[in-house]
Simulated scan of single mutants.
Amino acid sequence: LANDSVNQRINETASFFTTATLPGALERFGPGFKAAAMVRLMHSMVRFNIIKRATTDKGGPWDPAVYGIPIPQVDQMPAGTMPAYLTAFKALRKGRKHFTANERAIVELSRYECFLLGLPEELLPAEAPDIIDTMLTYSGTLREGYDDETCGELTRATMSVYRPKDEKLISKVHNRVERSFSKVFFTQAFLGRKDKSKAKEMGVEPRLIDYALFTVGNLFVVPRLIAYRTLQDIPVANKLADKILVKRIKELLVDYGHAEYTTDANQYAPTTQESKQETAA
């Protein structure tokens, strides 16, 4: 994700989770089901090539003895179960251990997406307290430490990518707002609202203009979100809202482009060890 393919990987990730929301997409042999299988195959190919490189290039950036198996299936859990985790957190904060019907739908969609991506059911609890406990346990097992050449570069590459396919003014404006929105959301959701030292260290610290554009983005998104949630509970109107949303999802998928879910080891960015060998040669 830290090289020229970052845009492709972002679009492919967005494409999978967007496709999964289409009606019937996760049914057996549906487009979401097939996409999940392709994602798992792609991860397997990357995993194989990283391990192969680690065994042939002594002193390479990835040491399985230290870091374990690269891209383990359990690492699909944070991204895939984040909607369920946030829903569980919201329910517990309101003093509830059980989900409403709408909350249950979010949780089950999240759980099944992760199941298709290869997570065992034991890591996909269904109730709010268990979801929180599992995610906290996962976080507690992560290796402590921060390497700017890997972690920082991954974050900066993702945050700075130019996603639009053209250089039109409206595309540039959209990209600028999206980039600022991402910085503020990332900082608040994962690094904490008060301590901005880590965001600064990672090179993604939001500035005043980012907060301003984040507010502008919310002024556009939040009213529409509230409107659609309101229409969900109104007979007939909810059917119309569904059609509009499905149409919008399909437009997004066109924008993301066709996801190939492929990888070519020959195009990987050279490792530190490889760079030294090339320089010496």
Rank of each mutant, 00 (worst) to 15 (best):
F17A: 07
P78F: 07
F33V: 05
S182W: 01
Y261C: 05
Y67T: 09
Y112S: 13
Q8C: 13
G24F: 08
V204L: 06
A265D: 04
P223Q: 00
L26V: 04
R9M: 02
Y162H: 03
Y162T: 01
H43F: 06
T272A: 14
V46D: 02
P270M: 04
H43K: 05
A54V: 05
M77W: 07
K168W: 06
D57N: 13
F33N: 06
D147L: 10
S182G: 08
P129I: 02
D57F: 13
I10E: 01
L252H: 10
Q76N: 11
L26T: 06
V107E: 08
G192W: 04
K172M: 14
A84P: 02
L119H: 01
E278L: 12
M82Q: 15
T141W: 11
F89C: 15
R224T: 14
E153A: 11
I69S: 07
N175V: 00
Q73S: 11
G152N: 03
M45N: 12
E12N: 08
Y256W: 07
F29V: 10
L240R: 12
T100Q: 10
S44A: 15
T230I: 14
R163A: 08
S44M: 13
A14I: 08
P270A: 00
I209E: 11
R40F: 00
W62R: 05
P235H: 00
D255K: 11
S182D: 06
L119R: 04
P164F: 00
D264Y: 00
F190W: 05
D147T: 11
A25G: 03
G118A: 04
V221N: 05
P83Y: 02
N11Y: 08
L1G: 10
I10R: 04
A237V: 10
P64A: 01
P78H: 06
L208E: 10
I50L: 07
A88M: 03
G145L: 04
T134M: 09
S5P: 03
V236K: 04
A20W: 03
A269N: 06
V222P: 00
A35I: 07
E251T: 14
L225D: 14
V246K: 08
T263D: 15
V173D: 01
I106M: 10
K194I: 13
V39Q: 07
P64S: 01
M82G: 08
L26P: 06
A2Y: 12
G80Y: 05
N11V: 09
A227I: 12
L191H: 03
L41F: 11
